[in-house]
Amino acid sequence: MNVLYFAWLRSRIGVGEEILVVPESVTTTGALVAWLKTRSDGHAQAFADLKLVRVAVNQDYVGWDHPITPADEVAFFPPVTGG
């Protein structure tokens, strides 16, 4: 699974992209976050408050119960500040 991080999530985790083999039990965006938090202190810190995090699957905004598969591109980022 291709996992992307942007803005301060990238800074805290230390990389902008990870290609991960995710356990079969991880089938939703929320479960993915719970699993990612176990990977490092940086991950745990980045995902400490999910109110500050948005998630997109294949470049569309989704919620924390959205299904995911190994073929998906999943991105995590803060609320946007363009314009």
């Binding site: 942007f6 803005a7 301060w8 991105a75 803060p78 609320p79 946007v80 500040t81 363009g82 314009g83």
Partner: peptide, 30 residues
């Protein structure tokens, strides 16, 4: 278009100041 763009388009600003770099927080007003 401007109102929706500001809350939906995935852009993030980081400001470079004399006191260091700071990610801009999203605004409730937007």
């Amino acid at each position: 278009l401007m109102d929706w763009l500001k809350t939906k388009a995935p852009f993030w600003k980081i400001e470079h100041t004399d006191q260091g770099d700071q990610w801009v927080a999203a605004k409730e007003a937007d």
